[in-house]
């Protein structure tokens, strides 16, 4: 227990979290500090490219073992099944109507790549070994949750008399698939992964000075922006109701618990296990909102983004990372 508290305190004083907190504070105090949107986008592109390529290089060097493939499969299943749990909690605790609860649930089944990236930085700092190819599982876990969310909305979003249940327009499946599978971050993550895999360690060395060395600094700058965005989001929409807020914390904790159980059953070592737990706990605010806006326009998309960006993301970054690492270290093999 003391070690968790100590790890949490250390995490609170890491540059990553402090810059995030600076962003939150500046946004809350309505400072005119702002990262120009184009630069924020470029930073996120840099992070995806770097993390994707690292993953590909790791795959080229380590190869694939059966355990990793099983974990991939488990990730896909977890992403598909978590929304069902999230749906129940948001319905019960938050009293959110079915279609919105389904859309929010889809956000929680999917993952946040920035949380994953922060987790890798955390593990490096803590000196806990992990394999960079885990990013492949992150990419695989982006989308199954969307299917689950749509299923929930169609199953439980009972139509009011004489109106279409979900939308007046048919859900544009082709357009959605395009949005989901070819959205910028997914394309770049997978593309960079393939490039890393093709070029291997040698390719990595040749671009390391640009691609990997400034990684942590860029992450700090990006988290500063995330803090600003989260604070502005909260200022715009207000804090969700207490029950909803509670669900926004409980759902990631449940996701983390289930992911930890899976990692333990598959005999995954602590570092990779912690990353898997982070994937189970994190919620999407990039790929899923866009898809849900298209498919479920009557869902409260604003609430979903507020929850994932301004409640769950800060929780995971500030308290979640040390907690998940401690959980993984306690229960998984080193």
């Amino acid at each position: 227990m003391a070690s968790i508290a100590q790890a949490a305190a250390e995490n609170l004083l890491s540059p990553m979290v402090l810059f995030f907190a600076l962003g939150l504070a500046a946004g809350w105090a309505k400072s005119d500090l702002a990262i120009p949107e184009a630069i924020a986008k470029a930073l996120s592109i840099y992070l995806m490219m770097s993390i994707g390529m690292k993953g590909g290089i790791a795959l080229a060097e380590n190869g694939i073992d059966q355990r990793f493939l099983l974990l991939c499969l488990a990730g896909i299943l977890l992403s598909f099944l978590l929304p069902f749990l999230a749906y129940v909690l948001f319905r019960r605790l938050g009293g959110i109507e079915p279609v919105s609860a389904a859309a929010i649930a889809a956000h929680y089944g999917s993952i946040s790549i920035v949380t994953y990236i922060a987790a890798t930085a955390y593990l490096r700092e803590a000196g806990l070994a992990f394999s960079d190819q885990m990013v492949a599982i992150a990419a695989l876990m982006e989308t199954p949750a969307i299917m689950a969310g749509l299923f929930l909305a169609h199953r439980f979003g009972a139509p009011a008399a004489g109106t279409a249940a979900i939308s007046a327009n048919r859900p544009p499946l082709g357009r959605m698939a395009h949005e989901v599978f070819l959205n910028g971050s997914v394309t770049l993550l997978i593309g960079a992964f393939v490039i890393g895999w093709l070029t291997g360690g040698k390719g990595g060395e040749s671009v390391a000075a640009f691609m990997f060395d400034p990684f942590k600094g860029v992450l700090c700058l990006f988290l500063l922006d995330m803090g600003l965005l989260a604070a502005r989001r909260l200022a715009q929409s207000g804090l969700p109701r207490p029950g909803t807020l509670l669900a926004g914390i409980l759902v990631p904790l449940c996701g983390a618990g289930v992911a930890l159980l899976i990692a333990a059953l598959l005999g995954i070592p602590a570092g990779n296990g912690m990353l898997f737990v982070v994937l189970g706990a994190s919620a999407s605010y990039i790929a899923v909102p866009a898809a849900m806006r298209l498919a479920l326009p009557r869902a409260d998309g604003g609430l979903a983004i507020t929850l994932s960006l301004a409640v769950t993301f800060p929780f995971n970054i500030v308290l979640g990372l040390p907690l998940y690492a401690a959980m993984a270290q306690a229960l998984l093999q080193p």
Binding site: E37, K41, N183, R232, Y285, I286, A290, I305
Partner: peptide, 12 residues
């Protein structure tokens, strides 16, 4: 209500 472009979420 009030709204503002939020950079990182496409389509929002």
């Amino acid at each position: 209500g009030a709204w503002q472009e939020i950079g990182i979420t496409p389509g929002s």
